[in-house]
Structures are given as structure tokens and as C-alpha cells.
Write a protein that binds this DNA or RNA. Structure first.
Lengths: 203, 203, 203, 203
DNA sequence: CATGAATGAGAGTTCATTCAT
DNA sequence: AATGAATGAACTCTCATTCAT
């Protein structure tokens, strides 16, 4: 029965995704997954070579590359359409597509960036932050004098802001809501972020 | 020698704090702590009933209450001294004291909010966020019409921003730097946050 | 179709024989056998009760009895046609028949004597050696004095040589070669063995 | 208590050596070793990193190098003191030292050559045979014509004989006996082997 | 008080065997 | 008769906790 077999595999993947999302890789026991769908632990090994195989089947590395790609795209877009207008039609339709796609893989993305202990994704968030700072830096004038940050402090601040722009969007992905709601909140948060930045770099 | 005994206990607590900070509760092995100060694993049990007892001695629940208290204070202060001026002397001296105190307990705070797997603090960050939103809400006018967020979406957005303000400050605590640097960056981030908020709620 | 059914059984037996020969009993997995002939693992259990049942169907205990019988025959022959002449026509034609027969069951024989872990044949080689020594002893004069072996040592030596004669022939069976080659090498090894023995027992 | 600790480690090593000797690496369960000396399985891991670490502590790779070295020495000696006299004083005293040393490590040697499944020693015997044939070949005239072996058959025969000269000596090591007995039997077996060879290569 | 060897529960994984289809 | 998914026991290894010394 092919359909039956495929169904169990899908069940395992679904339970694994959910459990990895809730507990992370290390804290997830094979028995957690098996119990969730009422099969024996051993039977998981009928479908997946081992725990890592199951994990990477459910949270594939290619997602990281994709996320990096759209992050860079977004930064370039925002800076090439200066002055920033978070409500513009073009920006809106570009990001609508992206946020929808991210929402599809929201649990995988959370796993990659926040539940990554014991996996190859441990440094994924830092790498994304570094890439973000690197990409953004080209567009930044030095911060206004009156904040009196030295270069090291300036870099640290940029990393913190980058980190948390990413985290805000991760947080948005984490929450259950309609695609429309997510898009609207995403737009609003963009306004928050862009105006926060503007206040630091405008004279 | 009571002093000798106390010293060993202090050593254990210091090593435990550092290791819980680096690895979190679950990933920290009793042998990691013992090795760090050159005593036997068993001897830890002379001073602490078990791993959890040691953990809560070093990261006491009362810290959470204290953190909640100063958060609420800060919000009230900011809103009672409207219009917001992040650079005001009064604000500055209030927060200077607070950020210094937070810095003293930075590792405990990180543990409570970010390395809390397996402990009773798993929900600490969410509780803090809820409190922050609850406190702030009283001061907020509905967001400008053109963002078109319904009440649920508005609440979600507030939670995300609250989350993100907390995370930014945690991130600042996490980094090694001088007290002065930390204060300056803290000020700058406040400007970012306050102007971000202003752009959402000012007409 | 009885013939169809029998054919599958024969296929299983053939694959099992080959795999037991290559890996031994313990290391052979039921799936190795099933995969080799493209049937399901479960189907093996249609024809055989379990792994041991399959094993003993393919490597039957009666073979051991047969091997013991021809060993004894050979020894008697050699000693009744004294002085030994390894090249004699009579010896040659007797052993030609035997070596050919052994070659037919070469894999079973190797399994019985060398891949017997986990089976009832663990002691088969020792039993054969004992029988060989027992049979041969009747024909032996005490070894020449100048070797100065006491009776226990003499017995140990006989066991070792018996072991070794058996092993040499097993080794010959193990190697892929033509029946003619095998016969010629068998003859040559006989010369080696008989002259080795003669040098110990001739004055 | 250092002495107590060392004793347990020695007990584990002794039990491991004996069990590896009896069952081989793969078939030996950690619980076999633990049960043999009445400790828990987990406690073995106090002294050894894992099963392989324990194995190679007890059967070190350096033994193989040593065995190869003395094999080559022996062959060269025998052939440089032609015509062979197995009873010569020089040969006797040379080999007396060697066989005594081999006897000390008899179980390790058996493990290396006969109980090596799952270890890095799987090919040890074949390598030793190859080395032996290679070393010996230089001293050999072609076998007498009347045996009518072609070169391939000749090589196969040499390998078989080499294999079983090694096996004879392994067999001798396997048996419990006094050092004197072992030496005497070793001498006698040498006579057997050397005269067997002589009968093949002398005209 | 201090030690660290010892324990035992539980993790991931393998595989002979069963059984619903 | 044939399938192969499913099971469960057994394996290696880890680590919080205990306890004799």
C-alpha cells in the first residue's frame, strides 16, 4: 500500500517538524515523535536513516541560502528607493510575496535560527546578522555626532539592531495569524524599523 | 573553618553561573562545573541538593520580580514625562542606575530569558512582554488609521515590539564592553526605539 | 504451481548459502538474503521458520558426519598402503573423487568449520581434529627420541598438525580455481604433509 | 584510593582480553565484560572512552608490527643458514626468545589474527601471509617439474602453506602449556615444516 | 568535608520476527 | 503466497546522582 506508507512518512515528518519547533533538535527524543503519532520508535527508522536525516529532511539547508538571498534583496531595494517609503506599492508587492513564502516555512525558519543546538545551523543567525550589517553598511553615513559612539560601539549597535530586526520578523512568523494580518503587521513593523534608523542617521 | 566552607560554595556558584550562562541549564554537566574549579563532582552535592537547587541558588526567582518592577517604572517614567526626550538629564540618570544594575546581573538575566530550557523560567520572557504591553497600553492612543491594523493585529504588533525592545537590551547585556560603552549604546538604542514608536502613534 | 513455490525456496537457499559463506551466520541479515534475490524479508518466513531453520536447511548437520567418514577412510587408506606414496594411482583416484565432492560442498564446509559463530558447529573443527588424531594414533610409532616430546606434548603436536592439515584443505576449498588446479595443488600439499610427517616418525 | 582504582581498570582489561579472545570484538558485549567482574556496564566507561578504546588498549596495533618483524627475521635466518638444521643451537636460542615473547601475548595475537571482525586487524593475517610469501620467494627455486604446477597454482600453494605455517604457530599459542613444552613442540613443528618444504623444492 | 568510582535510567540505533493486507 | 511496515529486545554510550572510603 503505497498511500499508507507515504502517509506514515508524512505523519512522521509533521510530528518531527512540530516537535523540533517546540523543543529543538537535542531536546527532541525520537520517542516524542513516535508517541505523537502512535507508532514505535523503531518504525521511524523504516523511513529515516537516523535522527539527523529526519531533521534535515524536515529543515533543509537550502532554506538558509534562500533566506540570505531575500534579506540582501530587501536591503538593496530599500536603499535604492531612497527616501524610504514603507507604504509604496512596489515595496508592498515585493514583500507580500516574500512574507507569504516565509510564513509557509515559519516553523523551519524558527528552528534554523532559534532551535538550532546540535545542528549545523548553530551560527545561522550570526551569519545572517553579519551579512545584513555588511550589506547595509555601504549605504550608511556615519551616525550623527551627538550620539557620540566610537566606531566599535557603532558596529556593536548595528549588530544589535540587525539582530533584532531579524528577531522581530522571526517573532512575526512564530505567531499564528492570517496571511493578511501578517502582511499588515509586517508593514507596520517596517515603518517602526525604518524610522528608528532614520532618527539615528539623519542630521 | 566556616570561611573555607563558604569559599568553596562561592566557587561552585561562580562556576555554575558562568557555565549556565555559556551552555544553559540542560547542556551544563555537573562535571563541567566541578572541573572549572578543580573539585570533585560529588562535592557539589555537599553544598547543593541537586542540579536544580544549585541553579536556583545562582539564578534566583526574585530577580524576575525585580526586573518586572524596574520595567514598569521605566515605562511610567517615560510616559509621564511626555513629550519623550531620550536625552533628558532625568531620564539619563534614572537609566544609568538601572543599566548598571542590570549589567551586574547580566549573566543571570541572560540565563533567565534566553538559556532557560529545562527550568521554570521558560515563560519568563513572555510574562515580561505581557506586563510591558499591559503597562504601556494605558498610555497609547489607537494607532494611526492608515496602518489599518485591527485590534488583534495591534496587540500582536505591540507584543512583537515589546519583545524586541527587551531582546535588544538583553543583547546589549550579553556583549562584553565597558560600562560607559554600554550606557552610550543603550541611549542610542532608546532613541531608535522611541522614534520608531513615535512614528507609529503620531498623526 | 508447486514448481514455482519450490523455485523460490531454492532461490532462498542459494542466496542464504552464499551470504552465510561470505559473512557467517551472525553477520548475515535476513534482508541481505532477501535483497539478493529480490523478494521481501517476510517471504523467507513462508518457507523457513526462522534464521536458524534456514541455516540448518542449507548447511545440514549430516554433512559433518559425511566429512568425518571420508577423513577416517583416507587415513586408513594411507596407512594400509604403507610405505606412503602420494603419487600412487590408487591414492590419486580415491582422492580425486573425494576432493571433487568436497569442492561441490565447499561453501557449506567453510561455513561449518570457519563461519560457525552462533551455530551448533562451533566445535566442529575440534571434533574433526580429535577424530583424526584418534584414528591416526593407532598407526603411529612413538616419535623419534631426539625430539624429546613427552606424551602430552606429542598429543598436542598431533592435534596441531591435524588441525593444520584440515585447515590447508579448507583453504584450498576456499579459493576459486578450476577442479584440475585444485586437484594438482591438493596432491602437492599431500606431499608436503606426508613428508613432514615422515620426517618426524622415521628414524 | 589509587590502588583500588587501578585494580578495577586492570580487572576490566583482563576480562576484556579474555572475552575478546573467546568471542571476538563484535560478539563481545560490554555487559559480558562487566558481568565477568561484577561491575556495572556504565562503570567501564569511567575507565575507557568506548568499546574500541578498550579493545585497542588491550590489543595494541604495535603488536602487529612486532610480529611482522620477527617473521621476516626468522625467514632470513633460516635461509641464510642453509642447509637448514632445525636443531641447531643458534636457531634454537633465537627462537626460544621469540616464542616466549609470543606466548606472553598469545591471546592478543589470536585476537589480531583470528578474532578480528569489526576491528582494524581484519586483514592482518593476509598481510602477514603476503609478507611471508614475498620474503620467502627470493630464496625459492621453482618447484620440481613433476608436480606440474603452473605459476598461479604455485603461488596459491605458497600462500596456503604460508597461511598454515602461521596458523600452526597460532594454534600452538592458543594452547595452555608450559614454556618448555611450547618450545619443544615449536621445534618439532619446525622440522615438520622445513622437511615438508624441502620435499617440494629439492630435486 | 571531600572524593570519584559506581550505578541506573534513558538516549539513539539495529534487526529478527510478526502480521494485517 | 507475498509483502514490507511495524514491533520490541538488545546493543553502545551518557550523565545526574549516590555512597563507601
Amino acid at each position: 500500500m503505497q498511500s499508507k506508507k507515504d502517509e506514515v512518512k508524512k505523519d512522521i515528518e509533521a510530528a518531527a517538524l512540530q516537535t523540533f519547533f517546540e523543543k529543538g533538535f537535542v531536546e527532541t527524543k525520537m520517542s516524542d515523535i513516535a508517541d505523537a503519532i502512535g507508532i514505535s520508535v523503531g518504525n521511524i527508522y523504516t523511513y529515516f536513516k537516523n535522527k539527523k536525516d529526519l531533521f534535515y529532511s524536515v529543515v533543509p539547508p537550502i532554506l538558509v541560502d534562500y533566506l540570505k538571498k531575500i534579506l540582501v534583496e530587501t536591503i538593496h531595494f530599500d536603499n535604492q528607493h531612497f527616501p524610504v517609503d514603507a507604504d509604496s506599492e512596489a515595496r508592498s508587492s515585493l514583500f507580500q510575496a516574500q512574507i507569504d513564502l516565509l510564513a509557509t516555512y515559519n516553523r523551519q525558519i524558527i528552528i534554523i535560527f532559534e532551535k538550532n543546538k546540535g545542528t549545523s545551523y548553530v551560527n545561522a543567525k550570526n551569519e545572517l546578522v553579519d551579512l545584513m550589517v555588511e550589506t547595509k553598511k555601504a549605504y550608511l553615513t556615519p551616525p550623527s555626532k551627538h550620539h557620540e559612539l566610537n566606531p566599535d560601539e557603532h558596529m556593536a549597535m548595528l549588530h544589535i539592531i540587525a539582530h533584532h530586526i531579524i528577531d522581530m520578523n522571526l517573532d512575526l512568523l512564530k505567531r499564528e495569524m492570517s496571511a493578511d494580518s501578517r502582511r499588515r503587521i509586517f508593514q507596520t513593523l517596517s515603518v517602526y524599523q525604518l524610522n528608528g534608523m532614520k532618527s539615528l542617521y539623519d542630521s
